[in-house]
Simulated scan of single mutants.
Amino acid sequence: MQEQKGKYEDLKHDELGIKVRSDDNPYLSADLQQKILQPRRLSSYFIVLIESGSITYHLDSQDFTLTDGHLLFAMPNQIFTPPAKTGDLKYFKLLFDENTLALLPQQFPFLVNPSNAQTLVLDNPAKERVIKVFEILNQLLISDKYETDTEIILAYLNSLLSEFNSAYFKNKGPVNILNTNLSKFTEFKLVVETSLTEQPSINAIAEKLALSTNSLYRIVKEYAGTSPKDYFINRLMAEAQRRLRYSNTSVKELAYELGFNDPDYFSRLFKKSTGKSASDFLPRQDLSGK
Protein backbone atom coordinates (compact mmCIF):
# COMPACT_ATOMS: atom_id res chain seq x y z
CA MET A 1 0.00 0.00 0.00
CA GLN A 2 1.97 2.85 -1.31
CA GLU A 3 1.19 6.43 -2.15
CA GLN A 4 -0.26 7.30 -5.54
CA LYS A 5 2.55 7.46 -8.07
CA GLY A 6 1.90 10.25 -10.52
CA LYS A 7 -0.60 10.26 -13.34
CA TYR A 8 -1.72 7.22 -15.25
CA GLU A 9 -3.23 8.65 -18.43
CA ASP A 10 -1.09 6.30 -20.54
CA LEU A 11 -2.10 3.18 -18.59
CA LYS A 12 -4.90 1.23 -20.28
CA HIS A 13 -7.53 -0.38 -18.08
CA ASP A 14 -6.80 -3.83 -19.49
CA GLU A 15 -3.25 -3.44 -18.18
CA LEU A 16 -4.45 -3.02 -14.59
CA GLY A 17 -4.15 -6.02 -12.31
CA ILE A 18 -7.85 -6.07 -11.45
CA LYS A 19 -10.72 -8.48 -12.21
CA VAL A 20 -14.36 -8.68 -11.20
CA ARG A 21 -16.52 -11.81 -11.44
CA SER A 22 -20.20 -12.26 -10.58
CA ASP A 23 -23.03 -14.71 -11.10
CA ASP A 24 -23.81 -12.70 -14.28
CA ASN A 25 -20.18 -12.89 -15.44
CA PRO A 26 -18.86 -16.28 -14.30
CA TYR A 27 -15.91 -18.30 -15.52
CA LEU A 28 -17.21 -19.92 -18.70
CA SER A 29 -14.87 -22.81 -19.49
CA ALA A 30 -15.56 -26.12 -17.73
CA ASP A 31 -11.84 -26.86 -17.77
CA LEU A 32 -11.07 -23.46 -16.28
CA GLN A 33 -13.83 -23.91 -13.71
CA GLN A 34 -12.27 -27.19 -12.60
CA LYS A 35 -8.83 -25.60 -12.49
CA ILE A 36 -9.87 -22.69 -10.28
CA LEU A 37 -11.43 -25.06 -7.75
CA GLN A 38 -7.95 -26.38 -6.90
CA PRO A 39 -6.13 -25.13 -3.77
CA ARG A 40 -3.77 -22.34 -4.76
CA ARG A 41 -1.58 -19.64 -3.30
CA LEU A 42 -3.12 -16.23 -3.92
CA SER A 43 -0.97 -13.82 -5.90
CA SER A 44 -3.46 -10.95 -5.52
CA TYR A 45 -5.82 -9.54 -2.95
CA PHE A 46 -9.14 -11.39 -3.10
CA ILE A 47 -12.57 -10.19 -1.92
CA VAL A 48 -15.93 -11.90 -2.32
CA LEU A 49 -19.29 -10.38 -1.35
CA ILE A 50 -22.41 -12.54 -1.10
CA GLU A 51 -25.52 -10.66 -2.23
CA SER A 52 -27.84 -13.60 -1.54
CA GLY A 53 -27.49 -17.32 -0.86
CA SER A 54 -24.90 -19.18 1.19
CA ILE A 55 -21.50 -20.73 0.45
CA THR A 56 -18.41 -21.93 2.34
CA TYR A 57 -14.84 -20.97 1.44
CA HIS A 58 -11.68 -22.63 2.73
CA LEU A 59 -8.85 -20.20 3.49
CA ASP A 60 -5.62 -21.58 4.94
CA SER A 61 -6.85 -24.03 7.58
CA GLN A 62 -10.25 -22.44 8.25
CA ASP A 63 -13.72 -22.72 6.74
CA PHE A 64 -15.75 -19.52 6.31
CA THR A 65 -19.48 -19.81 5.65
CA LEU A 66 -20.85 -16.68 4.03
CA THR A 67 -24.44 -15.57 3.55
CA ASP A 68 -26.33 -12.37 2.63
CA GLY A 69 -24.17 -9.28 3.14
CA HIS A 70 -21.11 -11.26 4.25
CA LEU A 71 -17.72 -10.46 2.79
CA LEU A 72 -14.50 -12.48 2.87
CA PHE A 73 -11.11 -10.96 2.05
CA ALA A 74 -7.68 -12.53 1.71
CA MET A 75 -4.10 -11.36 1.22
CA PRO A 76 -1.49 -12.53 -1.30
CA ASN A 77 0.26 -15.77 -0.27
CA GLN A 78 -2.68 -17.21 1.63
CA ILE A 79 -3.75 -20.69 0.50
CA PHE A 80 -7.24 -20.48 -0.92
CA THR A 81 -9.65 -23.25 -1.94
CA PRO A 82 -12.76 -21.89 -3.68
CA PRO A 83 -15.94 -23.98 -3.60
CA ALA A 84 -18.14 -24.89 -6.53
CA LYS A 85 -20.99 -22.43 -6.97
CA THR A 86 -24.22 -23.38 -5.22
CA GLY A 87 -27.69 -22.85 -6.65
CA ASP A 88 -29.33 -19.43 -6.42
CA LEU A 89 -26.10 -17.80 -5.26
CA LYS A 90 -25.59 -14.14 -6.14
CA TYR A 91 -22.11 -12.77 -5.53
CA PHE A 92 -19.33 -10.44 -6.62
CA LYS A 93 -15.63 -11.34 -6.58
CA LEU A 94 -12.80 -8.85 -6.81
CA LEU A 95 -9.10 -9.52 -7.40
CA PHE A 96 -6.43 -6.84 -7.64
CA ASP A 97 -2.66 -6.83 -7.30
CA GLU A 98 -0.21 -4.72 -5.33
CA ASN A 99 0.67 -2.60 -8.37
CA THR A 100 -2.98 -1.59 -8.82
CA LEU A 101 -3.28 -0.86 -5.11
CA ALA A 102 -0.23 1.42 -5.34
CA LEU A 103 -2.10 3.65 -7.81
CA LEU A 104 -4.83 4.51 -5.31
CA PRO A 105 -4.65 7.83 -3.41
CA GLN A 106 -4.89 6.40 0.11
CA GLN A 107 -4.02 3.41 2.27
CA PHE A 108 -6.44 0.72 3.43
CA PRO A 109 -5.23 -0.80 6.72
CA PHE A 110 -7.96 -3.47 6.74
CA LEU A 111 -6.16 -5.30 3.92
CA VAL A 112 -3.43 -6.48 6.28
CA ASN A 113 -6.10 -7.54 8.79
CA PRO A 114 -4.74 -6.02 12.03
CA SER A 115 -7.63 -7.47 14.06
CA ASN A 116 -7.28 -10.96 12.53
CA ALA A 117 -10.82 -11.05 11.14
CA GLN A 118 -11.09 -12.33 7.57
CA THR A 119 -14.81 -11.57 7.24
CA LEU A 120 -17.09 -8.55 7.41
CA VAL A 121 -20.84 -8.18 7.64
CA LEU A 122 -22.22 -5.15 5.81
CA ASP A 123 -25.39 -3.46 6.99
CA ASN A 124 -28.12 -3.04 4.37
CA PRO A 125 -27.30 0.56 3.33
CA ALA A 126 -23.60 -0.29 2.92
CA LYS A 127 -24.47 -3.51 1.09
CA GLU A 128 -26.67 -1.63 -1.38
CA ARG A 129 -23.98 0.99 -2.03
CA VAL A 130 -21.31 -1.65 -2.51
CA ILE A 131 -23.44 -3.71 -4.90
CA LYS A 132 -24.03 -0.64 -7.08
CA VAL A 133 -20.30 0.08 -7.24
CA PHE A 134 -19.54 -3.57 -8.00
CA GLU A 135 -22.06 -3.53 -10.86
CA ILE A 136 -20.52 -0.40 -12.38
CA LEU A 137 -16.96 -1.68 -11.97
CA ASN A 138 -17.95 -5.03 -13.46
CA GLN A 139 -19.48 -3.29 -16.47
CA LEU A 140 -16.44 -1.09 -16.97
CA LEU A 141 -13.99 -3.99 -16.88
CA ILE A 142 -15.83 -6.34 -19.26
CA SER A 143 -16.92 -3.70 -21.78
CA ASP A 144 -14.95 -3.54 -25.01
CA LYS A 145 -17.26 -1.14 -26.82
CA TYR A 146 -15.20 1.85 -25.76
CA GLU A 147 -12.04 2.52 -23.82
CA THR A 148 -12.67 3.54 -20.24
CA ASP A 149 -10.31 5.93 -18.50
CA THR A 150 -8.15 4.10 -16.01
CA GLU A 151 -8.75 6.90 -13.53
CA ILE A 152 -12.48 6.09 -13.49
CA ILE A 153 -11.85 2.41 -12.75
CA LEU A 154 -9.45 3.29 -9.95
CA ALA A 155 -11.96 5.75 -8.51
CA TYR A 156 -14.58 3.01 -8.19
CA LEU A 157 -12.03 0.61 -6.73
CA ASN A 158 -11.07 3.28 -4.21
CA SER A 159 -14.74 3.71 -3.31
CA LEU A 160 -15.19 -0.02 -2.72
CA LEU A 161 -12.12 -0.35 -0.53
CA SER A 162 -13.14 2.75 1.44
CA GLU A 163 -16.49 1.10 2.26
CA PHE A 164 -14.76 -2.11 3.34
CA ASN A 165 -12.16 -0.27 5.39
CA SER A 166 -14.88 1.67 7.21
CA ALA A 167 -16.89 -1.51 7.89
CA TYR A 168 -13.80 -3.32 9.20
CA PHE A 169 -13.07 -0.70 11.85
CA LYS A 170 -16.67 0.30 12.58
CA ASN A 171 -17.11 -1.89 15.64
CA LYS A 172 -13.54 -1.87 16.91
CA GLY A 173 -14.16 0.72 19.63
CA PRO A 174 -12.67 4.22 19.60
CA VAL A 175 -9.68 3.21 17.46
CA ASN A 176 -8.61 5.81 14.95
CA ILE A 177 -7.56 3.90 11.82
CA LEU A 178 -5.01 6.57 11.06
CA ASN A 179 -3.35 6.53 14.48
CA THR A 180 0.38 5.99 14.69
CA ASN A 181 0.27 2.67 16.53
CA LEU A 182 -2.07 1.02 14.05
CA SER A 183 -0.05 2.41 11.17
CA LYS A 184 3.12 0.92 12.67
CA PHE A 185 1.42 -2.43 13.27
CA THR A 186 0.30 -2.44 9.63
CA GLU A 187 3.90 -1.76 8.59
CA PHE A 188 5.09 -4.53 10.91
CA LYS A 189 2.74 -7.07 9.29
CA LEU A 190 3.91 -6.02 5.83
CA VAL A 191 7.57 -6.42 6.85
CA VAL A 192 6.79 -9.89 8.18
CA GLU A 193 5.06 -10.87 4.92
CA THR A 194 7.80 -9.55 2.65
CA SER A 195 10.80 -10.83 4.62
CA LEU A 196 9.42 -14.03 6.13
CA THR A 197 12.02 -16.48 4.82
CA GLU A 198 14.87 -14.05 5.53
CA GLN A 199 13.99 -14.29 9.24
CA PRO A 200 15.19 -10.81 10.26
CA SER A 201 15.75 -10.22 13.96
CA ILE A 202 13.16 -8.31 15.95
CA ASN A 203 15.81 -5.62 16.51
CA ALA A 204 16.24 -5.29 12.74
CA ILE A 205 12.48 -5.03 12.20
CA ALA A 206 12.16 -2.40 14.93
CA GLU A 207 15.00 -0.41 13.38
CA LYS A 208 13.37 -0.61 9.96
CA LEU A 209 10.16 0.77 11.45
CA ALA A 210 12.04 3.50 13.34
CA LEU A 211 10.89 2.07 16.67
CA SER A 212 12.58 0.87 19.82
CA THR A 213 12.16 -2.84 20.54
CA ASN A 214 10.05 -1.94 23.59
CA SER A 215 7.73 0.22 21.47
CA LEU A 216 7.40 -2.50 18.85
CA TYR A 217 6.58 -5.05 21.58
CA ARG A 218 3.89 -2.77 23.02
CA ILE A 219 2.27 -2.13 19.62
CA VAL A 220 2.25 -5.76 18.48
CA LYS A 221 0.96 -6.87 21.87
CA GLU A 222 -1.87 -4.32 21.61
CA TYR A 223 -3.11 -5.45 18.20
CA ALA A 224 -2.07 -9.11 17.99
CA GLY A 225 -2.09 -10.11 21.65
CA THR A 226 1.39 -11.59 21.41
CA SER A 227 5.04 -10.55 21.23
CA PRO A 228 6.71 -9.64 17.90
CA LYS A 229 8.88 -12.77 18.13
CA ASP A 230 5.92 -15.08 18.75
CA TYR A 231 3.92 -13.35 16.01
CA PHE A 232 6.77 -13.94 13.55
CA ILE A 233 7.18 -17.58 14.59
CA ASN A 234 3.43 -18.22 14.35
CA ARG A 235 3.36 -16.71 10.86
CA LEU A 236 6.41 -18.77 9.86
CA MET A 237 4.82 -21.98 11.15
CA ALA A 238 1.58 -21.17 9.31
CA GLU A 239 3.62 -20.83 6.12
CA ALA A 240 5.31 -24.15 6.87
CA GLN A 241 1.93 -25.86 7.20
CA ARG A 242 0.80 -24.35 3.89
CA ARG A 243 3.84 -25.66 2.07
CA LEU A 244 3.64 -29.08 3.69
CA ARG A 245 0.01 -29.41 2.69
CA TYR A 246 0.20 -28.00 -0.82
CA SER A 247 3.64 -28.98 -2.13
CA ASN A 248 5.75 -32.11 -2.46
CA THR A 249 8.78 -30.74 -0.65
CA SER A 250 10.53 -32.73 2.07
CA VAL A 251 10.79 -31.47 5.64
CA LYS A 252 14.51 -30.86 5.20
CA GLU A 253 14.01 -28.92 1.96
CA LEU A 254 11.20 -26.93 3.56
CA ALA A 255 13.43 -25.96 6.48
CA TYR A 256 15.99 -24.47 4.09
CA GLU A 257 13.28 -22.77 2.02
CA LEU A 258 12.03 -21.02 5.15
CA GLY A 259 15.48 -19.77 6.12
CA PHE A 260 16.48 -22.36 8.73
CA ASN A 261 20.10 -23.53 8.70
CA ASP A 262 19.29 -26.50 10.94
CA PRO A 263 16.39 -28.75 9.77
CA ASP A 264 16.33 -30.49 13.17
CA TYR A 265 15.76 -27.17 14.92
CA PHE A 266 12.95 -26.42 12.45
CA SER A 267 11.32 -29.77 13.22
CA ARG A 268 11.49 -29.14 16.97
CA LEU A 269 10.07 -25.64 16.60
CA PHE A 270 7.29 -26.90 14.34
CA LYS A 271 6.30 -29.56 16.87
CA LYS A 272 6.41 -27.08 19.74
CA SER A 273 4.35 -24.49 17.86
CA THR A 274 1.73 -26.72 16.24
CA GLY A 275 1.65 -29.81 18.42
CA LYS A 276 2.24 -31.90 15.30
CA SER A 277 5.31 -33.46 13.77
CA ALA A 278 6.21 -32.03 10.39
CA SER A 279 7.01 -35.50 9.06
CA ASP A 280 3.63 -36.79 10.27
CA PHE A 281 1.95 -33.90 8.50
CA LEU A 282 3.26 -34.85 5.04
CA PRO A 283 1.16 -38.00 4.43
CA ARG A 284 -2.01 -35.98 4.94
CA GLN A 285 -1.33 -33.82 1.88
CA ASP A 286 -4.29 -33.51 -0.47
CA LEU A 287 -3.49 -31.93 -3.81
CA SER A 288 -6.67 -33.09 -5.52
CA GLY A 289 -8.71 -30.09 -4.43
CA LYS A 290 -11.66 -32.42 -3.75
Rank of each mutant, 00 (worst) to 15 (best):
K208W: 03
P114L: 03
F260C: 02
G17C: 08
D60A: 07
P109T: 01
D262P: 05
D286A: 13
Q139A: 13
P174M: 07
Y168P: 05
L287Y: 06
N25T: 12
L66I: 04
S247F: 06
K276F: 14
K145R: 09
K170P: 03
T100F: 02
Y27W: 10
L178G: 13
K172N: 11
S29M: 09
T56N: 06
F260R: 05
G69P: 10
Q62Y: 10
A240V: 07
K90I: 01
I205A: 00
T100G: 01
Y168I: 02
H70T: 08
V112W: 02
P228G: 04
L254F: 06
D23L: 01
Y45P: 05
F96G: 00
F46D: 02
L269Q: 09
L94E: 03
L111Y: 07
E198N: 12
L104P: 12
L287V: 13
P82Y: 11
S277M: 04
L254M: 12
E98W: 03
V175S: 04
A117P: 00
P174Y: 05
I18A: 03
L157V: 07
V220H: 05
T56I: 08
S52W: 03
Q33N: 13
L178A: 14
Y45V: 01
S267C: 07
D10R: 14
K189N: 11
L287H: 14
S43Y: 04
L287S: 12
G289L: 07
T56C: 11
V175H: 04
A238R: 12
G6K: 12
Y223V: 03
L72Q: 01
G17R: 06
S115T: 10
L103W: 11
N158V: 01
P200Y: 07
P39E: 06
L244V: 13
P82D: 06
G259V: 04
F80L: 04
Y217Q: 11
F266P: 01
S162L: 09
G6H: 12
D144L: 07
T197A: 07
K12W: 06
S250E: 07
A167P: 04
F110E: 00
S183G: 12
F46T: 02
S162H: 08
Y256E: 09
S115D: 08
L66Y: 07
Y265A: 09
L111V: 10
M1P: 12
F188A: 04
V20W: 02
K252Q: 11
Y146W: 14
Y256I: 11
I177W: 08
E135P: 00
S288Q: 14
Y45H: 15
N113T: 09
D10Q: 11
D280M: 08
S288R: 13
G53S: 08
E257Q: 15
F232Y: 15
N116P: 00
P39T: 06
L49R: 03
V121H: 15
L282C: 05
G173N: 10
N234H: 13
F108K: 04
N116Q: 13
N165C: 03
D97Y: 05
V220A: 03
A206G: 08
H13S: 06
L37P: 00
L160R: 00
K189P: 01
I142A: 00
K145H: 10
D149A: 12
L178Q: 15
L182D: 02
L160E: 02
D10Y: 10
T81E: 09
A210P: 00
S159W: 05
N77S: 15
L94C: 02
V121N: 07
T67Q: 14
N25R: 08
E15S: 11
I50Q: 03
V121K: 15
S273F: 01
L11T: 12
S212Q: 14
P174W: 07
G6I: 12
